[in-house]
Design a protein around this nucleic acid. Structure first.
Lengths: 183, 183
DNA sequence: TTTTTATATATAATTATTTATATATAATAA
DNA sequence: TTATTATATATAAATAATTATATATAAAAA
């Protein structure tokens, strides 16, 4: 799937591995991420498959930038992947839920400490999504009107993050209250 | 992490790989899962590490059952893992969000089809969580009063599933309406 | 002035996970 | 009666992902 994600970004414009890592972290980071090493190795595979081509751009006093460009074949697999229906809900792995599930014999304070720590993390995460929707879409549309629909979908993904963090914090508060009463 | 999950289950009682797979699917399935093959190979590693021991139970006309029991060393690592704080929110991978993110150039109907399909899946998933909380806890507590706290935590995990599915469907409805207007 | 951050790429080693396959039988459902 | 589901374990092969490491320089911050 990372292959398709990288093709998706390269469809907008050619990029280096370094730039792809940053773009991912800043845009899809909250629902799709990859380590730097995985991005570089996946770009190599994509080039072997002829879905991207690369060229080196020399720089003074730094390693060459290797810029990747999507090919027609790459564009085709991207398009096919986008149209392929998603047939099952994602099975996410939630470390906190897993630990909590087995924590019945822990002391009350150990559980509450765990929950409060995670609450802080989600509180912080929640703040990252504060930009308001209309502003964001207006800004993009003013500069690049051809990206209007893209901007709406990017914002939908952001809104997912907003709702998710709100839900998570609500659940934590409910759960903290429950542990406080029942343990 | 699967290692710790398996130890967590074996702490309650000895189990076979087959039973662990079923127990996982039915309990932690919505926030932690594993394929059968991974469970069997992980059990082997756990036995090499002396965190579990196994013995074969002969059966007529079927392969022997291999029953795994947690050891003292295994119990210790489980305990340590449970107390270790979770230091970052889980970075989940959401295939639908990833596709949607790159779908700005697709036709309106292609996007709506994708979103409606997923909505059905989450609608179904949502129904799996309907059991009411007090009933569930009462039932377990009546039979095994020593599991009262465990039952409360298991139910907290279930409630997470309920809230998550509700949030997801709300977001899908919002997003479907947006695509309907803007595309 | 020393450390950190940012710019840039790359590989090795390990761990985690999935997919596919093999074997074998009994009970149940179509 | 035929196909599927449930019971049971196990390995091979492939893919995905993480962790660690190496190299090199400039700018900015502590």
């Amino acid at each position: 799937m990372l292959k398709c994600a990288l093709l998706g970004f390269l469809k907008y414009q050619p990029k280096t591995g370094y730039e792809l890592k940053q773009t991912m972290d800043q845009s899809t980071g909250h629902f799709w991420h990859a380590k730097q090493s995985q991005i570089y190795t996946t770009l190599k595979k994509l080039e072997q498959d002829k879905f991207v081509i690369s060229h080196a751009e020399p720089q003074e006093s730094r390693p060459d930038r290797r810029v990747y460009t999507i090919t027609e074949a790459g564009d085709k697999v991207l398009q096919e992947w986008l149209l392929e229906p998603v047939t099952k809900p994602d099975t996410t792995k939630q470390l906190l839920l897993l630990k909590l599930f087995f924590s019945g014999k822990l002391e009350k304070e150990a559980i509450l400490t765990q929950l409060r720590l995670i609450r802080n993390l989600h509180e912080q995460q929640s703040k990252l999504y504060k930009t308001s929707t209309p502003d964001f879409i207006d800004e993009i549309t003013a500069l690049q009107p051809e990206l209007k629909q893209d901007a709406h979908l990017w914002d939908a993904a952001r809104r997912f993050g907003v709702l998710y963090e709100k839900m998570y914090i609500d659940w934590l508060d409910e759960t903290i209250a429950m542990v406080d009463v029942e343990f």
